[in-house]
Amino acid sequence: MSTEEKYVAAAYLVVFAFVLVYFLIMALKLARLEREVGELAELARKRADG
């Protein structure tokens, strides 16, 4: 692989990495929200049971 090809590959990989990290962070956040929904549902169920 020539130096020029390496720079082009690096530029495209950087974009891919940025988007991947973004999705990773969003996935972690989604998992947290899912856990919180579960906790709130549990709390609501306990309240309903008295």
């Binding site: 720079y7 690096a10 530029a11 950087v14 974009v15 940025f18």
Partner: peptide, 14 residues
Amino acid sequence: GAMTLVTGSLWAKF
């Protein structure tokens, strides 16, 4: 913006 700066720097380096 960060992606612009990084890809631009890679282009400029070469």
